[in-house]
């Protein structure tokens, strides 16, 4: 039996404590406490607009948090800059919600970007690795020389995924990895994430709305609501969490304690 709560933060791969972020008067994160253990796959669920993407961006330092601490491998990261920040970022592979591919570069170069840059591989080696990574997300060599704009949305997402995992980073961050994919491809991607965590020993932090996907890839789940983590625990406990917010979310009911901001009607 796993311990119900995370172990001491010092052991955690990622430890967020009291993380706060507001945009003007709008408070998005209001004291998020979250720990992810090494080699664990944590899935964050939560309604649209609750700040899940903002949470990942704070973790990467793309947005400066207003308060709280972010420790990675036990090291506080909010004040890193220059070379230290670059080294820190090298631990991460990130899949953006909108893929965020570089549209001036062909697909293979997107995937090989870090291999060619920071890792200093030759073009030929980097291309070979990029093609192998593309194959693992179900894309053949015929897409390698296309521009990202020539791909469908789901294909772009998979290229983004390939780019995130190509350099085999320590920590994988996936912002809605299966949105926009057909059910079969979604399952391929789920398998791939599970495999990355199992085989590479990476730690994964994913965001998803897709409960089937969440069940497949998660070791633990956490729910973000109104700026806080209102529930977290092993995935098999989510079905009887006893938390009405979680229940409403995982069953997708319009009726319940969570009120969607819908006008009119």
């Amino acid at each position: 039996m796993l311990p119900p709560e995370s172990p001491a933060p010092a052991l955690a791969k990622i430890a967020l404590t009291g993380l706060r972020k507001a945009f003007g008067p709008k408070i998005v994160l209001d004291g998020v406490d979250l720990a992810v253990n090494p080699g664990e796959s944590l899935v964050i669920i939560g309604g649209s607009g609750t700040g899940k993407s903002v949470l990942l961006k704070c973790l990467l330092g793309l947005l400066a948090p207003d308060g709280g601490t972010i420790a990675v491998d036990g090291e506080e990261t909010t004040h890193l800059s220059g070379r230290k920040r670059t080294d820190h970022l090298a631990k991460f592979g990130m899949l953006f919600q909108g893929a965020a591919l570089f549209d001036s570069l062909p697909v293979w170069h997107n995937v090989a970007f870090r291999l060619l840059g920071r890792e200093g591989l030759s073009r030929r080696e980097a291309r070979a690795k990029a093609l192998a990574t593309l194959a693992s997300v179900g894309l053949g060599p015929e897409v390698a020389d296309l521009a990202p704009a020539e791909l469908s949305g789901g294909m772009q997402k998979r290229v983004g995924l390939a780019r995130a995992i190509a350099a085999r980073p320590d920590i994988l961050l996936f912002d809605e990895p299966t949105t926009g994919l057909d059910p079969i491809m979604a399952d391929v991607i789920n398998e791939l994430i599970v495999k990355s965590v199992r085989e590479l020993g990476s730690t994964a932090l994913s965001i998803t709305h897709d409960m089937a996907s969440a069940h497949k890839i998660a070791d633990r789940m956490a729910m973000l609501h109104e700026g806080r983590i209102i529930w977290s625990g092993p995935k098999r406990e989510i079905d009887h969490s006893g938390n009405p917010f979680v229940d409403q979310f995982i069953h997708g009911r319009a009726e319940g304690p969570i009120h969607m901001q819908v006008r009119g009607g």
Partner: peptide, 21 residues
């Protein structure tokens, strides 16, 4: 226009996460 598009489509963020300034 090019850098602006890169900004709003998060390509600049992606660049940062790929250890490129």
């Amino acid at each position: 226009a090019e850098l602006g598009t890169m900004r709003v489509t998060e390509q600049i963020d992606a660049l940062v996460t790929l250890s490129t300034n």
